[in-house]
């Protein structure tokens, strides 16, 4: 199950590709088969299940295209007092 999830506001994307260069999972690419309303090839997620929700794409994106979610950590067992 994917650890993270990104929502892409496609029509904001200018296809600069900066996010593609920083994604550590290499799961972003610029669409090859379509254009957005600005006439650019928008970014898309190739393998959503591999997303870790690290938000590096959102960190470098100049156009605030991404909204990022990350799976909550399961509650940790309480530390045992030494």
């Amino acid at each position: 199950m994917a650890k993270g999830m990104v929502l892409i506001d496609e029509d904001r994307c200018k296809g600069c590709g900066l996010c593609v260069t920083v994604c550590p999972q290499h799961i972003l690419r610029l669409a090859e088969d379509r254009f957005n309303t600005k006439g650019y090839r928008p970014v898309e997620v190739v393998a959503p299940e591999a997303c870790t929700g690290c938000a590096l794409c959102a960190t470098i994106c100049p156009d605030v295209v991404f909204t990022v979610y990350r799976r909550k950590r399961p509650p940790q067992p309480a530390a045992v007092a030494a």
């Binding site: 993270g4 999830m5 029509d11 904001r12 600005k38 929700g53 938000a55 959102a58 156009d63 605030v64 991404f66 909204t67 990022v68 979610y69 990350r70 799976r71 909550k72």
Partner: peptide
Amino acid sequence: PADMELVYKRPQSLTETH
């Protein structure tokens, strides 16, 4: 999904303008 938490969203101090 309910077990996902928001970690990044558009800041309120930016307008929606492209």
